[in-house]
Nucleic acid binder design. Sequence first.
RNA 1: GGGCGUGUAGCUCAGUUGGUUAGAGCGCGUCCCUGAUAAGGACGAGGUCCCAGAUUCGAGUUCUGGCACGCCCA
Length: 1221
Amino acid sequence: MVLARAGQREPFGFRPCRLNRLRPLQSRIFEATFSISDSASNLTAMAKSAAAPFRADPTPPKFPALEEEILAFWKQNGIYEKSLERRADAPPFVFFEGPPTANGMPHPGHCLTRAIKDVFPRYKTMRGFRCERKAGWDTHGLPVEVEVGKELGIHSKEEIENYGIEPFIHKCQQSVWRYMQQWQRLTERLGFWVDLEKAYVTYHQSYVESVWWSLKNLFDRGLLYQGHKIVWWWAQGGTALSSGEVGQGYREVADPSVYVLFPLVDQPNDSDAQRSLLVWTTTPWTLPSNMYAAVHPELDYTLVRDSESGEEIYMASALVTKIAEKSKREFETVETCKGTDLIGLRYTPPFDGYKSSTGDPLGELVQPDGDQKTLHHFWRVVEADFVTTDSGSGIVHQAAAFGEVDYEVYDRERRRFVEGQQPQLLCAVGPDGKFVEAVSDDLIGVWVKDADKPLSRLLKERGLMFLQEQYLHDYPFCWRADQDPLIQYPRESWFIRTTKFRDLMLKNNSQIGWQPEHIRDGRFGNFLESNVDWALSRERYWGTPLPIWVCQETGRMEAIGSYDELLAKPGISGTEVWEQAKAADPALVDDLRVHKPYIDEVTYESPFAAGARMKRVSEVIDCWYDSGAMPFAQWGWPHNGDTEFKSQFPADFISEAIDQTRGWFYSQLAIATMLFGEGASISEDGYASAPSELTKTDADYPLPFRNCIVLGLMLSQWWEALDDDGKKIIALEESETKQHKGKKFTKQIGKMSKSLRNYRSPEEIFDRYGADALRWYLFANQAPWNSIIYAEQSIKDSIPEFLLRLWNTYSFFSIYAAIDGFDPCAAVDFDDQLSPASLASAPKYRPAAERSEIDRWILSELQQTIAKVIERMDALDNYNACQAISSLLDGLSNWFVRRSRDRFWASDKESQDKHDAYWTLYETLIQLTKLAAPFTPFLADSLWKRLTEPFAGKVLESVHLCDYPTSDDSVIDVELSESMRLLREIASLGRAARAAEKLKVRLPLSEVTVILTDDSKIGWLQNHDALVREELNVKAVHYTTEGDQYVQYTVVPNFKRLGPKVGKQVPAVKKALGEADGNELLAALQSKGVVSISLGDSAIELDSEDIEVRLKAKEGWAAAQGLGSVVVLNTEVTPELQREGIAKDLVRAIQNQRKAIECEYTDRIEVSIDAADDQVAEAIKEHGALIGGETLADTLQAGTLEGVESVDSEHGAVYVRKVTG
RNA sequence: GGGCGUGUAGCUCAGUUGGUUAGAGCGCGUCCCUGAUAAGGACGAGGUCCCAGAUUCGAGUUCUGGCACGCCCA
């Protein structure tokens, strides 16, 4: 049928094809008379009406094109802005945008985060909240520098400095916007409503100044301090490498593995033997910097006597045999002990360089151990959890300067001593990787890796080298100079004392609603538990400069909280460097004045020493600090934006992927905990605390976000094969693999890879299927915290599964509404969002309670769905919200519409039932459109425009300006839902029984009998059996509970109820019920209300709630069984029924032939049938009118049609010819 | 090596305080419908719920120990 071709939107009423059907048909042979069909009279009325309010919209849309239209509409009419204006005075729902970096291309993973970040604000806005959505961009950091470095073909810091920091910074500033357009396009095209124009940018001066303010705050409270950080260091290049860079340079090498004797200082009195620790290390060059020897407190250790030398040696018990074998010695056990027993023992260090220069210093303990108030700084046995017996000796050499875990041990030890008496870090190596401290005079200036051999020789000479071997392991080399091994090396670094806030961070964390919940006590909670101080500084160029100025004479420091504060300092100088640069190049953005190198030039008079200058330290800060400061820095607070900040903190909702656990989730929490609420009053001893305005009570101040959805990773799915040249062929859909004949493809799931091109770009997805398809896929297919497979086919599938289904339901409505001229404007009191209550003003609008069952049913389902969606969305559960919407759409499309077709086609245009049907469908579509709006905003708005077209501008122009529907409990009828569910089950069982008996639906049957376990719903079912009769093509339906002849009753326990009641007797009850006669039990239950079961000596009474009656169809019936019902078919086919079935078969055969000869839907035909037997001829005679009417046949004769090819049907040859002229 | 997570139909995923016939979509098979028609629909097949043990009247669900995979950190 062609009602209107694609793009045509003409009113339906004048379609000539309908009017043709007015002409009665005469069948010459069978003399059937035709009455004017119902539909024809309907059309007559239609033809006379003026242009209908609705236009038939039968063609499925091209969703991408439709979305582009909607995008243009939103833009032109400022819909997003209007949606905010409407909520100007509403309570806030605060959303924080975690800033992405725009110097890389956006990829599918960003679609997920941006879609989730859109759906909840949209929902909350419709629910009546003011949800501002300020975009943001993360612009600082090493990735930006690397990107610029690639462009310039340079890598090292030295090269950058040769190139010039000033032009390098300019390049960085420009580079961060490289993919801005793509980002903006993605954001917009996906339908992510966010204010890009007022986006915060981390390099902006106001942002930097907010960060400065916060750092000054921390500095003034004594929480910002200098210390050491162990980094992977490229000694030859003089720079630290990021973990990513280090990861690139691993390769397998052979390194020495040495077991060294550390003689114990306090030897036992009762023995002359020398006692030593057997200490293991794989880096002999770090031995001169030895500070401790570490044991695991829980491990067993054995003191052995070397039978050859008589020495007594401690080692892990588990390793005694292994070490004896390796060293070819014989050991006898002297004694065994736990690691804890060794802790505190003192030894002589392997090299005495430090001992001779520093002596053996003592320090005062913070917490004295009994009488012991002091402790030696170095050369003691300490405990460490990381010691294992996998290799080595179970006692590990500790050189804190050259290992991160070693440094942690040192740091722990250091804190045991009072301030000023703490041990220094022993480091015998300079930043160039060469020895500086005298181990032996020969070694000064020797590169560490060249020192292993001479050091080993020295140890041997002194009898301390117990065992030496080689072992293979992966070790990092510099990725730019692959002969240069990296070493771990301590660098001066700035730290924030976050450990002081650990408990408070945990407390704040406990207030956060994490989705999924396990993040709180799992990954994030554990991370907080093991909190270490935040290493803040970076020896780089493009980042927020650390705002600390140092007195060049005294070394005393102060922090600066804003640029103006800096300018107000006495004797300021150096600002002219920026002014000159700006004058030379007016295009420079002003924000650069607070960046390197300009800010480094600004100095002022020292308040600490007359005549001295204050100069900034050289470092910039970790860009994670930037992002974590966004809650206030996005407003430039506290220098600006006081109102905004106070109304927009803390956030109600944020979302990012799980990789942000240690990133943005942590940086936000840490910064907010330190600056606001209870944490603001915490300072180091002797330092000021923060202003009291920041220390609001925590009760209404959970920090810094109330809810967070932690998204899973996004993976790709593709098919892979090798072509003849051994190159990979990638197919993104399974169907694509068929283009490569003879190639064997294997399905792959894994990370997305730009080089492999194993995923479809978001832009292509939008062009092929549209943003709504992608969004629906992301929202409705799995809980968002599971890893999501970005599979093209699955995205494509969301079109038929949801989008097209919704569209087709609307399309059905539009076709019939056009035919009947249904006009919703009859509701004169309509409000601007067509709320159901306001539509009630239409003359033919009846309250739901007065409408037919199926109307009440779908309206009840609608209200239940609304309640469910709201409940789920308020719990940030988009998945189950979508499931509820899907399920409603299924009910609407597959039951309400299907079972209401006749009502829409009915001839009496003014019948109340027809109006009920329209109002029901219209209201449901309107509400469904609103429900879907946050999820599929394009389709929803497109439907809204079409559904509200008759109101011509008198209602809200976009669905996104509407209020979200609220549930009307008075319309909910749970019992009706239950009854309808049973009715649908009966229909389904009937179809199954038919299929099993090979009785196709076209063959009418005389009756079905439905056996139920109880009679509570029989009355209702009888009133609605027309639905079942039509659905199953039967003449009659009988309902009964007396089904003994058809079914066997069995009684099973209701375990949920019986379990708590009878406990351990459950199996006995089950057995007794199983053995009893079901029919008798049922009879007893019906007459007395209870059944009695004997269990050995005792008896137990069970009521109808305790047990459940089940039915099982007996053999020999055409039956199908469900949980509480059995449907039995009467399979007797009378000649009458047979003939009716034959007629329907013929209709189908003729219709197929119409299609085969390419008839338009309106074409008239001539039909001849060469009947196979008398029965067929009889059927044609009896049902000729039906056949002719259905197939638009002008003539229907027996025999053949000359010049026409016949088609065989089981009832004879069928000839069909188009009537021309 | 440590932490966290995941493991359910051919595939992708749901599965409520533990309740005895474990669900959906896709795919597959069979079929229906032909006035939503370049649509729509039904029915069916398909499961050792990763393995082992424990708790319990009862375990996909709780506990313990494994295995596999993924992520983060070493």
